[in-house]
Write a protein that binds this DNA or RNA. Structure first.
Length: 524
RNA sequence: GGGCCUGUAGCUUAGUCAGGUAGAGCGCCGGGCUUUUAACCCGGUGGCCGGGGGUUCGAAUCCCUCCAGGCCCGCCA
């Protein structure tokens, strides 16, 4: 059974029919590919719950109340003044990285494009801005409980995580006079007000029913589980480690009066491109960029096809072809779950694969066969390289019977992504079509006399015929017959001459694209 | 030091929760296709399931132990 379906079944037994899957993100601007695993894991469990007829929601909590932790490389020095301030309350950077006081908040600025990217992979969560949950008082009860039980919480954190907390540690961080929560000391609590004094010596009070402060991370996480009734939130393995935030979160959540979700941990995902690894070359790739290169169902398949506790190497180089092939083959020839001939194991594998395919669809419930848009990933990679204009690509697809009429938007997006990939550093060199200008000596040595005669004869024919796909194709065959070699030998010779390999894309299309002059020069 | 995860064919892996003769894809080799869109079709190759021990009629699967790799224990998924 697929892990998402298995989880749905388990959740149903543990928590009944009402399910709330959740994932979160800090909109600091530093997104990485791992967020996709977190989000898709939660979203797929949500879909599996729906498919199991459970009443499921998927919420996406944006940590907009989290403080700016440091001045990131893409920010100007002016952001120094905002360190410690909630991301929802500080201005977004403009194109030069300077704060733009007239625009949207920092949190919204980075969140927008990210949500757009999620829509591309068919993820439409209920978005919860965490600062709003503070603002509208939903946190108040939990904050009060946390303050009342501060000693117990402190003990939980200290005993489970092994960290030692300061004597003046307090389970609530109020905002100081400058809006930052750094170095603000709590001086007292009179429900619902927390009294504080900040680093400038200014004092004030924070109303726990408003967004005038927040719970520290480990408590915030535990509290929100209760507030939103979250039954499932996959967490990265860092949280899952002994003493990590999951282990402290479970008892804290109970202490605050709610039932926590059961522990669920996923492994890391790492990016490998065609070039050297990120640290040395800066050849790294974020989730938004990845979605600009890779077909969305392939991204989903990457996550859906791997078990949660399995480390994923996301390779944006040649392995993409393999992954796309695998997906397309699966879709074209889905395993027959009903077959009587399968052993138990084969049956389990078939069901798992079918589940992965189902969960890889952008639109829930749509037919997987429609996702490939009638053209293979490999084929499109070839066409995108030899056809400069999109119109010519569609023309070629119509000729080959892959396309009827106008391309749909899925296919157009596929081509756009393919072009992005090809022009990026990630595209594998050995997939690049390199057309030679001359037949080199090495190639000549590999060919027999008949093949060489065939090539030079072909060059002469090419300078005379009509320059069309069909004509070129016919000429190759007739010339081959005249030279007394088989179709196979003739094509092998032609590909070796043009590409230095024995195989290639359809020869006539390729030659048409090369152009008469270069083709004749090459063969003569 | 404490803990988590992983180790199955050259590569990527399924199967481990519910023990019942090791499955797949890629690669490779051979054959087919007298129009080769890196194609497609057919056949073949390949595994003491990390090592050792235990439980069992029976273990990749459960238990113990060792080895190897990755990771966490600082608010990095």
């Amino acid at each position: 059974m697929h892990w998402a379906d298995y989880t749905a079944e388990r959740l149903s037994k543990e928590r009944g029919t009402k399910q709330v899957a959740c994932s979160g993100i800090t909109p600091s601007g530093e997104f990485h590919i791992g967020h996709l695993r977190e989000i898709l894991s939660a979203e797929m469990i949500h879909r599996a719950c729906l498919d199991a007829d459970l009443d499921s929601r998927y919420i996406f909590i944006v940590d907009s109340m989290d403080p700016l932790r440091r001045v990131y490389p893409f920010l100007s020095d002016e952001y120094e003044q905002f360190i410690g301030c909630p991301l929802a309350f500080i201005p977004a950077p403009d194109s030069e990285g300077k704060p733009d006081y007239d625009g949207v908040s920092y949190a919204e600025h980075f969140l927008g494009p990210f949500l757009d990217a999620l829509a591309e992979i068919g993820v439409y969560p209920e978005v919860v801005m965490n600062h709003e949950t503070y603002q509208n008082g939903q946190f108040a009860k939990k904050i009060d409980a946390a303050i009342e039980k501060a000693d117990e919480i402190k003990q939980i954190i200290e005993s489970i995580s092994g960290r030692e907390l300061d004597d003046n540690w307090f389970p609530y961080k109020p905002l100081g006079s400058d809006g930052s929560m750094d170095e603000v000391t709590v001086t007292g609590y009179e429900k619902p007000f927390v009294h504080w004094i900040d680093r400038y010596g200014n004092s004030g009070t924070a109303d726990i029913r408003k967004a005038e402060g927040k719970l520290p991370w480990r408590i915030d996480w535990a509290a929100r589980w209760g507030i939103h009734g979250i039954t499932c939130e996959p967490a990265g393995k860092d949280h899952g480690a002994a003493g990590g935030s999951f282990d402290t979160g479970l008892p804290i959540c109970k202490l605050l009066g709610s039932e926590p979700p059961s522990k669920m941990v996923y492994e890391w995902i790492q990016v490998k491109g065609a070039g050297p690894m990120s640290s040395s070359s800066g050849n790294t790739i974020g989730p938004i960029e990845a979605l600009n290169l890779v077909p969305p169902e392939i991204i989903r398949y990457l996550i859906a096809g791997s078990k949660m506790n399995r480390h994923i190497d996301f390779n944006t180089g040649g392995a993409l072809f393999q992954m796309a092939d695998e997906y397309e083959r699966l879709v074209a020839d889905p395993p027959n779950i009903e077959s009587e001939e399968l052993t138990k194991r084969q049956k389990v594998a078939a069901i798992t694969q079918t589940g992965a395919m189902r969960l890889s669809q952008i639109d829930r419930g749509s037919n997987p066969a429609e996702s490939v848009a009638g053209v293979s990933f490999r084929h499109l990679a070839m066409l995108a390289q030899i056809k400069a204009s999109d119109e010519d690509v569609w023309g070629s697809l119509r000729n080959s019977g892959h396309l009827m009429g106008e391309p749909n938007s899925a296919l157009k997006k596929r081509l756009t992504r393919m072009r992005n990939w090809i022009s990026s550093v990630h595209f594998p060199e050995d997939a690049r079509i390199q057309i030679r200008s001359k037949i080199d000596d090495e190639t000549r040595a590999e060919l027999n006399d008949n093949q060489l005669n065939f090539l030079s004869e072909l060059g002469e024919q090419f300078s005379e015929i009509n320059w069309s796909d069909e004509e070129i194709s016919t000429t190759i065959r007739t010339t081959a017959a005249k030279s007394g070699i088989s179709g196979r030998e003739s094509y092998t010779a032609l590909y070796l001459a043009m590409l230095g390999r024995k195989h290639g894309p359809k020869a006539s299309a390729l030659i048409l694209e090369i152009g008469r002059k270069d083709a004749v020069d090459l063969l003569s």
